[in-house]
């Protein structure tokens, strides 16, 4: 009797101990969709939670792949996540199926079973997820009353398109356009473009514009006019008529122009030669009109920087 009991105990204990050691799959839980009331095209979501002992991990190859499973069933998406809880790793799979089965009468269908394989080196373990059934119902036509105007009466008028609210966009556009115009106006003011081309404080800008035009068609008269224009710009900038011998003092007061001192001196020398020594040719050789235009453009750029 004792021997029998011992033998029985040994018989019972052995597979239990072996089972404990063999299966790292601690639990498989599923959250199933309802089992009825589906029509063609409906979505079914199945959540599966598998708890495994570490360090077993889910083998990627056994994880279900989205795609067509059969002629009536698609697996739309698979979302796998895992987290650790102590010595346990919890895998959560969210599977979304879509059925395209068209039953003629209510009929039970099944989402397929899954075998999820977990590995740890050479050791493997399989978690079986059973199939789950659900009942699909047919779509039945409801026969409406025959409309008086014939089959055309079945057609319903088109739904009016929903008006998209545009007031925010319009306000945004107006504000943007206003800001653009303002920015343009400020830029024009800064650069002394039309209608600010005669603004105060941009004499070299005006002269540069005129000189650019004159330099395109050089002639003796254009050269004289160009020199005079730049003289007027210097006059306005200095606040009085600036003669050649005043240039030193002028540069002391307008330090930003000082790097161009030699060019300014060359301009005044050329002007003196052209206007007072009656040597226009010599003056043009000493400082041709494009050089005068370039000088005024450089001074205009400095002037815009606000000096």
């Amino acid at each position: 009797m004792i021997a029998f009991l011992v033998g029985l105990l040994a018989f019972l204990a052995t597979p239990l101990a072996a089972e404990e050691a063999a299966s790292p799959i601690l639990s498989v839980e599923t959250a199933e969709p309802r089992g009825f009331g589906y029509f063609v095209g409906d979505l079914l979501r199945r959540d599966i939670e598998v708890r495994v002992a570490k360090p077993f991990t889910l083998e990627g190859a056994t994880q279900p792949k989205p795609g067509r499973l059969s002629y009536w069933l698609d697996l739309r998406s698979v979302d796998v996540s895992s987290h650790d809880r102590g010595e346990i790793r919890v895998y959560r799979l969210e599977l979304v199926y879509q059925t395209f089965y068209v039953p003629l009468s209510p009929d039970e269908r099944h989402l397929p079973a899954l075998k999820l394989r977990f590995v740890d080196g050479d050791k493997t373990a399989i978690a079986n997820v059973p199939p789950i059934g659900f009942v699909m119902a047919p779509l039945r036509e409801v026969i409406p009353k025959k409309p008086a105007e014939g089959p055309a009466g079945y057609l319903k008028p088109d739904a009016l398109p929903r008006r998209i609210a545009t007031s925010a966009s319009r306000t945004g556009f107006s504000a943007g356009a206003g800001l653009t115009l303002l920015a343009l106006a400020l830029l024009a003011h800064h650069e002394a473009w039309w209608p600010f081309h005669k603004r105060q404080g941009r004499p070299f800008g005006q002269a540069a514009r005129v000189l650019r035009r004159l330099a395109r068609a050089p002639s003796e008269e254009a050269y004289r006019e160009g020199l005079r224009d730049l003289h007027r710009a210097f006059d306005e900038s200095a606040g009085h008529r600036l003669l050649a011998e005043d240039v030193g003092g002028y540069l002391d007061r307008h330090v930003a122009f000082r790097p161009h001192g030699p060019e300014i001196g060359r301009f005044f020398a050329a002007s003196r030669q052209a206007f007072f020594a009656n040597d226009l040719k010599g003056a043009e050789t000493a400082m041709p009109l494009p050089a005068v235009a370039a000088l005024s453009a450089q001074l205009s750029a400095i002037e815009r920087r606000g000096v």
Binding site: L227, R228, H231, R232, D235, G239, H240, R241, L243, S271, F275, F276
Partner: peptide, 8 residues
């Protein structure tokens, strides 16, 4: 006068 009369 010298501040206002342009030259040249």
């Amino acid at each position: 006068v010298f501040a206002k009369v342009p030259a040249p």
